[in-house]
Design a binder for these strands. Structure first.
Lengths: 110, 110
DNA sequence: CAGTATCCCAAGCGATACTG
DNA sequence: CAGTATCGCTTGGGATACTG
């Protein structure tokens, strides 16, 4: 399926970390969980990310089967990103992080 | 509670990322979910981590209320780390990552 | 618009030496 | 044993310029 076939970590958690163990990747997932987005939209939502880094992460995630890249033959170009089924299943992880973050904030804000 | 009181991110997911959005932190949680561990044990389990980085992360996580540091007045010293309740509640996130990693591996191994 | 290419800097890390 | 301190180096990432 991908280059990852070699050197798969034994621990499933490490497997997950290899594919989304990065701040930006989690946030890209967050954005795409609400639906397909264009490159420019992603860049705007992900406050502070540079074009270079966004491109790099999108490429990696596409390679790993987490998202689809749809190029429209237009001028100016239009590229849309959406989650694959595998990518969408990361919602579980995302939601767990969401809930924990919520709970933590309530604690801190006291 | 902590220095984090200023500049709390609005998004709960970003909050979580601030506190455990790092490969090593997730793995430290993984280790401590099975019980209290000494510094040396952690270092051995976390394959490849340097003493410096392990210390840094443990300090940060202690400061953020994720874990307890218990120092025993002995020679040679003995220091034990364990999760706080808040830290332990990260099990949800850990487990979600575990399950997703498992599923992903099955996909890839075909 | 959505990239690629290049240069460059600083944070982060490893390696090493030392200590309560 | 479990650290701290110091020093280089690697590399991730910002800034900028250019293009299909």
């Amino acid at each position: 399926m991908s280059i990852l076939n070699e050197n798969l970590p034994a621990c499933p958690v490490e497997m997950t970390l290899m594919l989304m163990g990065d701040k930006w990747k989690v946030l890209i997932i967050r954005e795409l969980l609400t639906g397909t987005k264009r490159f420019g939209e992603l860049k705007k939502s992900l406050n502070g990310i540079s074009q270079k880094v966004l491109t790099q992460h999108l490429r990696m995630m596409e390679e790993n089967g987490l998202l689809n890249r749809q190029v429209y033959a237009q001028v100016p170009p239009k590229v849309e990103y959406s989650l694959t089924d595998v990518g969408h299943s990361l919602k579980q992880v995302h939601d767990a992080m969401w809930q924990w973050g919520e709970a933590y904030k309530k604690q801190v804000e006291i």
